[in-house]
Structures are given as C-alpha cells and as structure tokens.
Design a protein around this nucleic acid. Structure first.
Lengths: 340, 340
DNA sequence: GGCGCTTATGTTAGCGCTGTCATTCGGTGG
DNA sequence: CCACCGAATGACAGCGCTAACATAAGCGCC
C-alpha cells in the first residue's frame, strides 16, 4: 500500500535492511545482486522486490573494501580540451562497455607534478588498472606505479620504454615520414609552426623526426616559429602570419598539429594565399575540422580511438603484470588532403 | 640499513605497518596523514619517514567507508567530444582545486537510459555531490537522485525546474534573442540548419525561442534542414549546401551551434559565397574555432567554464540539500562577429 | 596543591560489505 | 539404508580505516 515516507531517514538503506525485508540473510542478497552462486528463483524474486521497494543502492566502498577489488580503471590525460584525448577516452569507454569496470578520469594539465599527485590519488582507490598518456613521468610517479603492482598502460607514444605496456605510435617516425612525404612532393623551403613543447613533448618528437628527414636530404628548416602556449586554432593563425612576415620564400609550412594547421589555413583564406598552390600546409592528427575545410588538410591520422580501445583490451586480457614490457604500434596514415 | 625487499609482498602496506614502524598507534598515523588534530612535531617526522620508507598509499575505500564520506563529486556529461563539456569540466576542476574533492566523470552519450545507469553507478560510490548536464532525466533517475539525499546541480540549462540547483542559461531565451538580434539587423528570410535534437534538446529549445521571436515579428522560417546525427563541422557544411540548393533566396541561416556554423562558413568559402554580404550566418556557443575564422562567427557566447565553477562552489558552499530549489543564470552575450 | 585547560596520544567499535567455511535438505546409487 | 552429492542458504570474521570517546601529561592559577 502506501510507502512509508519517514522510513530510511538520513543514513541510507543497507544490505541488512533489504535482507530483513526479504527474509533472507545479507549474503544471499549480496549474491543475488552480483549473480554469484546458485540462487532459488523464488528467493531471487523476493529479494529483487525488496531491493526495488527500498530503493537500495549498494555501497561500493564497502564492497570494494571487502573484496579488495574496486572494478575501477584509473585514467590520466593531460587535457580534455584537446580533442584527441576525449577520443582516446571514447576507445577506453568502448572497450570497458559491459565489463563492469568503470573509468575514473583525471586531468594533469600537462604538468608532471600534477600527474604525480593524481597517480597517488587514483591509486588510493585501488584501481585494477591504470592508463596514462605519455611515457614521461617524475621518478616518484614511476616508483608509485611500479610499486602498485597494477597493470599500467602508457598510451599515445612508443618512442621510449614503458613500465608495462605502451600503446600508440612513434611520433618521431611520424615526423620523419612527414618530412619524406613532403620532400617527395618536391617541397624544399620548409617552415615550421609549433606550440609550447615543454608540455607537449610529443610535438617535439615529431619536430625532431621532421628535421632528421630533412637533414638526410640536405634540406634545412628555413624558419621556425613557436607559440609559447597550448596549441589552438587562433595561435596557428597568428603564428603563420608571423612566420610569413619574416620569410616570403617558404613553399611549405609544417604545423605541430591540426589545430595549429587549421589556423594556418584560416590565415591563408583571409590573406588570399591559396593553400598548396601558393603555400603548402601540413598538420598532424587527422581531426574532423581539418578534413571539413574547403581545402582538406594534408596531415597524419593517428588512431586515437584504437589506442584507447587496445590499451584496455590488453590490460583486462591479462590482469597480472607480466614479466616483460610490451609495445603495441597502432600506426598512422598520411592523408594526402588538398593542402600539400 | 638495507630496505627489506621481501617485505610487503603481494597485499600492500597498511596503516598498521606504518604505525608499527613509527612506533605509534594507527590513529596517529591516520591523523597525521589527514592533518587532523594536534600532533607533536617529532612524531609527525617519524611517521612521515615511515610512510616514505614503506611507500604507503592510503586505501580510500576503507577511509571512505569508515568516515562515510568519499570526497568524491560525481559528474555526468553527455559527451566529451563536444568541446563545451570539457570546458564545463574545466570550471569544475578549477573550483575543486585545493578542496580535497575529486571529480568522477561519466559520459552518457546523450542517452537517458545510460544516464540512469550511470547515476546508479556513481551513487554507489557515495559521492558528496553530483553535477549532471541537463534537466531531463528518466523518472527512475530522478527518484534515485532525490532519494540519495546528496546535493545535485543540474547544469547548462535553466528552462525548467531542477531537483535542487540549476546553473546555466535559458536556451529558449537565447534563441529568442538571436531572432530579435537578427531581425534588428534587417534580416527577413531565415533558414535554419540543425542537428539531431532528440538527443540535444537544448538545441531544440533555442530553435523554439528563435521561431517565437520571428513569429512576433510575423516573419516565418523559410526553410529548415536538420542532420540526423550529432553536430559536427562536416555536417554543418553539408547541410548548408543542401538548404541552399533548395532555396536561393535566404538572407540569413541560423545554425544549431558553432560547430555546425563553422561548417557553414567552410561551405561558403568553398562556394564563393561571402559571409554576411551574400548570406549571414549565426551560431551558438562562442567557440574559439569560430572566432579564429577569417570572418569571425556571429554567435552567442555561453559561459561554460563559469557554469562548472559556479555549480561546484554552490554545492560545496552548502552541503545539506536545502528546502527550496535554486536557479542561477550565468547568462550569455551576443557576439557580433563578421558573419551577421 | 588540586582544579581546569590544552595538547598529544591511545582504545574501542564499528562502517557495509564479501570470502570462506559450514549447514541443511532432497535426491541417488550401491 | 546410508554414505555421498550438489543446490541453496547461512554464520562469522574481517577488509583498512576513522569517529568518538578515553587517557595522560604538562601548565598556569588562585
């Protein structure tokens, strides 16, 4: 009949309340809620009714403590406003779907000290695995990760040795291939427009690879321009204007990523410079914006979704940390586009 | 001297281990780690040394259970790839900084059933507050939220009644003001390009407001075109092409948001249509991309960061759920731009 | 010199679950 | 007819921590 309104005041419904109402023991309720062990059909019915009636919500803190397993996966990314990381998270979510695991996302703001603090904070929740963007950590952070014993995937790059598992692509190689591609297309007077790489050191790796490719062909980078801040469309636009003011003879400009390159295209459109014909532009990432441009961006597609998905699949596939390290190359493709 | 390597094998270091090593009771260690209560300087020293030596990481599951307070704030957003939500999260993180609270982010994919499941899942972690995008939930979801007793902020929109606290802007009003603004500029032949609003019903509210403003001036929406899917730059570009193929006499097109509108600008640039002179374009959100365009987008700036920040500040300002509901309008500004 | 007060530390009981090891009960086969 | 089995359920201890209430010691003060 009428639900009792005053019941369950303040301190919530517990397993004991449900058990009492359903006339079974707590453990039976617990088993039913977790589909664990054999349960009589009528008992299950009765218990589920009691759960519904009381509006019982399990307490995962208690559950996790009792079973020493939280069903949590810690994830640390440097940013969420750089769209590549939400895309990695998309892959993670997709792989986590239906496993009963839940991701806990933390953002380090491209700061290793913050990252270290977040690692400590996340480990305190006893996650069953961790996914971290990048291979670069403080010594303390690395020690905590190693000491935790949980499986660790370091994602996005594979240019140095991971703690346990690395999933991503070689940014140095991508930069190198960019150089070779552009050289192959006949470009010789290279400019580079980048952003702050003390924080985004993968951008630096790509730059290094690019320079190495050019060096092999005895071609020098004519001019370089870096924005002291995070990458953005606006910064790319301004920096291209700046580099072009300094040098009029460039035939190609390589950008640190697609955001910057999109800004570059905007500058060209505003200044009456025809992409490719007058000046070639090249990005990195293969973002949707760049491909929707009137002149689709020539760029390198990194497989962000796949990176996240693969990392989780591998991690959950083997729960014990293995002896050796593993490195998975998710590769990349050069997109020819219309700007180079 | 040498640290014992074999110690602490498998099941981690606990408070008891640290206490033993530091020759104090567990509670003393606990107090020191939480800066709680008076502690002698030498004791603190000794304990901290023991913590360092053992590499102790507190178990928050146990801590939370014992103190029935997790220091967690649950956050549910429909998407992370739509940049506005990461921006809200930025505000949330900023307000959470230094409070000891941590946000747990979950993504509903614009699906109310998923949202309901996430609410159940997050409540199981006994968060001390919840932030949810939107006012629209399943009945069950609403019941769980109400029943939980925790403070709830529903963010982004304030067009209907919240459970506890709403922080955002009136999308209907924003749409209305958009209409009035454009009418004031002399536009009379309106087109609308949108995306799937069964999922994004705030876009629908803005549309309704727009239509209402036009109706007041006895102006009709000449043509409408909606993409059956999430908003994106590419979709905006294609849809504008499509609507222009159907009608050649439009003098302004209103887009469901800046992503779509940016795509619209791209189409214009590719098709030789001069924004504003030949066709006015109007967006919503005030994203950076739109403002970096050769012709900065005319749009409405919603204050996403402020929304997140304000929600958390209010929530943590008063931990008990108050009697009445509160609605905070973070407002918006019309950005004149160069496209309308 | 005993009262109250502050500072520093300890003891005791759980928080709400789940792992482990019973226990009960109706078949089953030798 | 009884040892034996599997299916269904329960009793109990304890996960690792912290709130709440002691306890102990030092200090000023009338």
């Amino acid at each position: 009949m009428g639900a009792k309104r005053l019941a369950g005041r303040q301190r919530g419904v517990t397993l004991a309340d449900v058990a009492l109402l359903a006339q079974v023991s707590e453990i039976t309720v617990s088993r039913i809620l977790r589909n664990h062990g054999p349960i009589g059909a009528d008992t299950r019915e009765r218990v589920m009714a009691a759960v519904r009636q009381t509006g019982y919500v399990p307490n995962r803190l208690a559950g996790g403590l009792a079973s020493s397993g939280s069903k949590l996966v810690g994830v640390i990314v440097p940013s969420l406003t750089n769209i590549v990381f939400p895309e990695v998270l998309g892959g993670i979510r997709s792989a986590l779907e239906g496993t009963g695991f839940q991701a806990v996302i933390a953002v380090s703001d491209y700061d290793l000290a913050t990252e270290q603090a977040l690692i400590a904070s996340l480990l305190a929740w006893k996650p069953e695995a961790m996914v971290i963007a990048g291979l670069d950590h403080t010594e303390m952070a690395r020690a905590m990760l190693v000491g935790s014993g949980v499986r660790i995937a370091e994602v996005m790059e594979i240019d140095s040795q991971p703690i346990d598992l690395a999933v991503g692509l070689s940014h140095r190689q991508a930069g190198f291939d960019t150089g070779q591609y552009l050289l192959g297309r006949g470009y010789r007077r290279f400019g580079y427009v980048g952003h702050d790489w003390t924080s985004d050191h993968r951008a630096k790796l790509r730059y290094d690879g690019l320079v190495a490719a050019l060096a092999e062909a005895k071609v020098a980078l004519v001019e370089t321009c870096r924005f002291e801040g995070p990458s953005s469309v606006g910064a790319g636009r301004d920096m291209l204007a700046q580099i072009l003011a300094r040098r009029h003879d460039l035939d190609v400009v390589v950008f640190s990523n697609d955001d910057m390159a999109t800004g570059g295209v905007f500058h060209c459109l505003g200044a009456g410079i025809r992409p490719k014909q007058d000046l070639a532009l090249f990005g990195f990432n293969g973002l949707d914006v760049g491909q929707a441009l009137p002149t689709p961006l020539s760029t390198v597609r990194s497989n962000r979704f796949l990176i996240g998905k693969t990392a989780i699949e591998k991690l959950l596939g083997q729960r014990e940390r293995p002896e050796g390290r593993e490195i998975i190359d998710t590769g990349y493709d050069i997109i020819t586009g219309a700007t180079a």
